[in-house]
Amino acid sequence: MTARLRRWLVAIVACAAMVGLHAYSGEFPNEHVSRASVGTPAALYDATVTVNSYAIGQVLYNDTLFQGRSGVIYLAVNITIANPRGERSVNWQVGGEANGRTFAANDLLDMPQPGFRITQDVVFELDPADLAGFTVSFLHRATIYAYDPKIVVDLGITAERADELLAADRYATVTTVKATPEVIR
């Protein structure tokens, strides 16, 4: 073996080891994206998440409070998170994306304890122009991953569908449901 070849070999092994360590330590926020559709359960960590439905309106009624601003609409996405047997994780992040912009949800997710499922609404405040193509994402961020698993659910709102929704419900009141745990039978 020539000296040059040996040096290259050592360098390649060292680089591979460093890349491996770096990926394992989770310092890079890499994500592994899986796609799901409305009504289809998708596995994330020890739980499954299902986007059940969505609703829009210019007024949001949340428990005891009405709120609304002109120029924006509220998109309430109804989801169910089920945790049949696994560990309860609080490392979930929920967000939205449309037209290259990202949206934060108004509230944090309620995570079910083992043996329970929780159905709740996740609310986004957005420009009506961002309704078409809106996707909801669920990310489990933890140092145990080299690639954090992420579920992206396309709500299936085409431009035509967005026009229909805005024409029908733009000035509606979106009433969110209170998250209530139910035991999984």
Binding site: M1, A3, R6, L9, V10, V13, A14, A17, L21
Partner: peptide
């Protein structure tokens, strides 16, 4: 000796990893 040195380095990297 070159092979031995290379093997030692590879083993050390693997052990540390």
């Amino acid at each position: 000796r070159q092979w031995l040195g290379t093997a030692a380095i590879v083993a050390m990297v693997l052990a540390l990893t």
